[in-house]
Amino acid sequence: MAEVTGLVVRRGGRTVLAGLDARLGHGVTGLLGPSGSGKTTLMRALVGSQVVSSGSVSVLGHPAGSPAVRGRVGYATQAAGVYDDLTVAQNLAFFARVLRAGAAEVDRVLEVVDLHEQRGQVVARLSGGQRGRVGLALALLGRPELLVLDEPTVGLDPVLRARLWTRFHELAEAGAAVLVSSHVMDEAERCDRLLLVREGRLVADGTPAGLRERTGAGTIEEAFVALVHQEQP
């Protein structure tokens, strides 16, 4: 679904991604790493909104961000990226029109993120978690083949968080590749596959069980620490 080769991103003299290689397949892939490790930058490179110093990023068989993939990649940012002065329904209606998706599609995505009852409310009046879910709903419009979700579960209550993870797996079963970033390691177990990043490099790539086995660690958090130590003793 996506392939990143030798990706280097520098910002203001600082190297954010230092020659990162990664492949993204079907299913739900977790992108895990501490904050500042380059997760958001990698995601922006995948959707094609990041200036890249060198390396290549291909998505659905085309260069990331090229006209052929616009509209086929859904992106939810940490900042939500919604119009606070419009209602939930107006936000969705606008992006649906841009994407040529119908009114039924708006209802569908509202159902997925559980915001049906809030559809008539102005976004500025919603809670932070609800606002984030509006951004998530926008990313789901038009059934994109690749979903790039930047920390979509931050600040949500555990019940809702569990429900969203179930939704991500449903979307993946329906054929989409789902990439979810998180700095919370306990979310790792919910993913089919994990990409662990630290300081702009890929530390490890594998299934949660595989990574624990490889390191002999009990949790992904311990596995992460073990992998970092292996790399730089």
């Binding site: 959707v47 094609g48 909104s49 961000g65 006209p67 616009r70 509209g71 990649v73 992106y75 940012t77 900042a79 939500a80 990226g81 919604v82 119009y83 606070d84 992006f95 841009v98 994407l99 926008l138």
Partner: peptide
């Protein structure tokens, strides 16, 4: 600054 422009520009616009 709100991220809506970034969102719009990765769509077919």
């Amino acid at each position: 600054t709100s991220g809506t422009l970034e969102r719009l520009l990765v769509l077919p616009t």
